[in-house]
Design a protein around this nucleic acid. Structure first.
Length: 779
RNA sequence: GCGAGAGUGGCGGAAUUUGGCAGACGCACUGGACUUAGGAUCCAGCGGGAAUCCCGUGGGGGUUCGAGUCCCCCCUCUCGCACCA
């Protein structure tokens, strides 16, 4: 039901904008590669291709039943060779520019999915898809160099003013920019100095030892030939064997081992013992940390455990820390102490000055680091786009020649879950001549992460039939960026980050001119039942087909739009659905009961002054409703309040049908009102609206009508009710006319009978007038 | 721990943009009409307490003629991040 909600919102926007006269591209396609198909194949003995095609056919039929106004000719599926051939070409272009590369590193391995996951695809130490705990495993993998775009991905977040703030924040945190310095610590025995990254160079004078990640190349090397050699080897090996699930890592106590070597603090000259420590991450910074126990809690605990010296170099305002009496690190800012010429400076300016000093002395330099890592895209699974690379003993890694694309994913494959791609077993696939030297070659057997498929599909929609290249520049220019994107919050740092990255890469390849793919983003809430997300595994799913069967498409659409604003979660309610259905019945009965009288009538074209007070009231309601519905859709996609306004108009219509004299003027008003309401609800309930439109005798489709505009005269109020307060409490209401002056209004308020009773003859101290809203009399 | 967001009737939610009638609209519920029948339809009621007034938007304080809305403190919940040096 979640996807039905998403697509319904999109369809309303598309239909609304069409009626506003825009040329709307409203596409649909299939993110069709991936594990669900492959797992279904394993479980049911089906081929993923057949399973996928069947699902697409089923879904397409359902979407058509729901009446979504898609541009079906633009339809694409990511598992079509016509689609992924261009993706393979993008890969090759990236490979040529060093943006796609292969390296061996510890990567996230999901034992259930039997494949590697990118960092973004691990949530709280668990697989985003199956919730299994993720392990670290050393593998040789393909990566996309998203870090090359870290700064731009961060900076351009400022352009995304129509994105939800929390998505922007999540991306900003994910990219995780830190300003600091690299500092070089010379080894006591000579050789290459150790480089560290720190954001707290103001604490440099307090660095008393050095910590290396267990994977750091120097860890073993520095211990060689020292009495510590065995201890370090054991520690590092034990570390490699440790269960490195992310969950388990949090439990691990801070431990380390002395390497037997020392380095020198470049500013104090002190001898610093070099430790290997299990809490230092190889992936972040330089894999080495200068330890400042007085001002970093981890270093403090480590120093306590191994009896290492603590030296205070930052004094908090208004007190004096002593190393001997500290029970924890002081991590906040303060004033530098015992830091040479920088003593007495505050932390922030000291950081700037010290970075400058280090650069001058060649002891280090200013540096920026990001938490963002490169995107691992190799998947050891079958149902994905093959990575178009050929390995040759002589030539190394050679991209598949462009003329041979696509590198077809073979369909005659036996799938067995073994933790490596079945393509590796299929000689007809992997055995190939090297395109460079003609010698024996071997194709890469891993496939691409399916997030690659979804990182650029929105561009391809502009030209899904284009054969001459990845994208047709003219059409992409015309349509992109996407004005309105709708999706779940779960993709805040997954798809939405990758898509931004790809857009920038494709821009740098000269294929698009935009910097950002999605101008406006709406993150719609979940559909829940009994408080939990609808999921087959929870057995709380409502099948859209059943609903359509029972109530029809429009009721389904209307309920999803009415029950909650789009960005909020929506709790399913069978009774709420019935309520939506009831409204459509009321609308239906209203139009049908009036249509015999309305067929020969033209909508009201006259002036407000032609109308009786009661007629004017109804006319006014029509135009206020037009204004409200338009604003609710335009401002925030608040369809729930737009529908509420439409319901009010229908209610007012029933009253007017009862009370207004049935003369020509009234009928022309009814005609205007009926046409207006059908136009207003058309984007949401297009089938019923169209049917009723025809019932009124209209020949041309409702879809082709212009969105109604509120008549300014119909919005004006010649007389209105004004609230009168005494000391801020509502005591009465008076009817005033628009032409009355403030003095006249005040006078009317003060002489109102009820108010006179409250005043008890006292003179008001003050009378506050809020234009068109109220009068407050203070006594 | 850090960051973001939210707390309004029995329920979903309006009003928060711009301080100005709190509870639009709908669901549920109650009473009535019509009916062989009602899980259809229509009409009326529906925050709490008292008889025309008082109290009410998580709690406490403040600003203001006036606060759901602005400011300060606190509580609760949801989400995201979490050895990032």
């Amino acid at each position: 039901m979640g996807h039905v909600r998403n697509y319904t919102i999109g369809d309303v926007v598309a239909r609304y904008q069409r009626m506003q006269g825009f040329n709307v591209l409203h596409p649909m396609g299939w993110d069709a590669f991936g594990l669900p198909a492959e797992n279904a194949a394993l479980a049911r003995g089906l081929h993923p291709n057949n399973w996928t095609r069947e699902n697409i056919a089923y879904m397409k039929a359902q979407l058509q039943t729901l009446g979504y106004s898609y541009d079906w000719p633009r339809e694409l599926a990511t598992c079509d060779p016509d689609y992924y051939r261009w993706e393979q070409l993008v890969f090759i272009e990236m490979f040529r520019r060093g943006l796609a590369y292969k390296k061996e590193s510890p990567v996230n391995w999901c034992p259930r999915c039997q494949t590697v996951l990118a960092n973004e695809q691990v949530e709280g130490g668990r697989c985003w898809r199956c919730d299994q705990e993720v392990h670290l495993k050393d593998l040789s993998q393909w990566f996309f160099k998203i870090t090359a775009y870290a700064e731009e991905l961060l900076a351009d977040l400022d352009q995304l003013t129509h994105w939800p703030e929390r998505v922007v924040t999540m991306q900003r945190n994910w990219i995780g920019k830190s300003l600091g310095a690299e500092i070089y610590f010379p080894l006591e025995g000579g050789g290459e100095p150790i480089t560290v990254f720190t954001t707290r160079q103001d604490t440099l004078w307090g660095a008393t030892f050095m910590s290396l990640a267990p994977e750091h190349p120097l860890a073993l090397e520095l211990s060689r030939g020292t009495p510590q050699e065995d201890a370090v080897r054991r520690f590092v090996e034990h570390w490699k064997a440790t269960d490195r699930t992310k969950g388990a890592l949090e439990e691990v106590t801070k431990e380390g081992v002395f390497t037997g070597s020392h380095c020198l603090n470049p500013v104090t000259g002190w001898q610093m013992p070099i430790y290997v420590a299990n809490f230092v991450l190889m992936e972040y910074g330089a894999g080495a940390v200068m330890a400042v126990p007085a001002h970093d809690q981890r270093d403090f605990e480590f120093a306590q455990k191994y009896g290492l010296p603590v030296k205070v170099v930052i004094q908090p305002p208004g007190q004096e820390l002593k190393a001997e009496t500290m029970t924890g690190a002081y991590e906040d800012e303060g004033v530098l102490a015992e830091s040479g010429t920088f003593t007495g400076l505050a932390s922030a300016p000291a950081r700037e000055a010290i970075a400058h000093f280090l650069e001058e002395q060649d002891l280090g330099k200013k540096a920026v680091h990001y938490r963002l890592r490169d995107w691992g895209i190799s998947r050891q699974r079958y149902w994905g786009a093959p990575i178009p690379i050929i390995y040759c003993d002589r030539c190394g890694m050679v991209p598949a020649p462009e003329k041979d694309l696509p590198v077809l994913l073979p369909l005659d494959v036996e799938i067995t879950a073994v933790g490596r791609s079945p393509l590796a077993e299929l000689e007809s696939f992997w055995k190939v001549d090297c395109p460079a030297c003609g010698g024996p070659g071997r194709r890469e057997a891993d496939t691409m992460d399916t997030f690659v498929d979804s990182s650029w599909y929105f561009l391809r929609y502009a030209c899904s039939d284009y054969r001459q290249g990845i994208l047709d520049p003219a059409r992409v220019d015309y349509w992109l960026p996407v004005d309105q994107y709708i999706g779940g919050i779960e993709h805040a740092v997954l798809h939405l980050l990758y898509a931004r990255f790809f857009t920038k890469v494709l821009r740098d390849l000269g294929l698009v001119k935009i910097d950002e793919p999605f101008t406006r983003l709406l993150t719609q809430g979940m559909v829940t039942k009994e408080g939990a997300k609808m999921a087959k595994s929870k057995g709380n799913v409502v099948d859209p087909d059943d609903l359509i069967q029972q109530y029809g498409t429009d009721t389904t659409r209307l309920f999803l739009l009415f029950a909650a604003p789009p960005e909020k979660d929506l709790e399913w309610s069978d009774q709420g659905v019935a309520g939506a259905h009831r409204f459509l019945n009321r609308l239906w009965n209203l139009v049908h009961s009036l249509s015999p009288d309305l067929k020969a009538v033209q909508p009201f074209q006259g002036k407000g002054s032609d109308l009786s007070a009661a007629q004017w009231e109804f006319w006014h309601k029509i135009h206020r409703t037009i204004k409200r519905v338009t604003q609710d859709i335009e401002d925030d996609f608040h369809f729930n309040t737009a529908i509420a306004a439409a319901m009010e108009l229908v209610n007012a219509f029933y009253l007017a049908a009862e009370e207004l004299p049935r003369n020509d003027l009234t009928l022309s008003l009814f005609r205007e009102g009926a046409e207006a309401i059908l136009k207003l609800v058309n984007p949401m309930v297009p089938h019923i609206a169209e049917e009723l439109w025809e019932t009124l005798g209209n020949r041309q489709s409702l879809q082709l009508q212009a969105w109604p505009r509120a008549n300014p005269q119909g919005l004006e109020e010649s007389a209105y009710t004004l609230v009168v307060q005494v000391n801020g409490k509502v005591r009465s209401r008076i009817v005033v006319t628009a032409s009355m002056s403030d003095e006249q209004i005040e006078n009317a308020a003060l002489t109102d009978q009820t108010i006179e009773k409250w005043l008890q003859g006292k003179a008001p101290q003050r009378v506050v007038m809020a234009r068109r809203k109220l009068v407050n009399i203070v006594i």
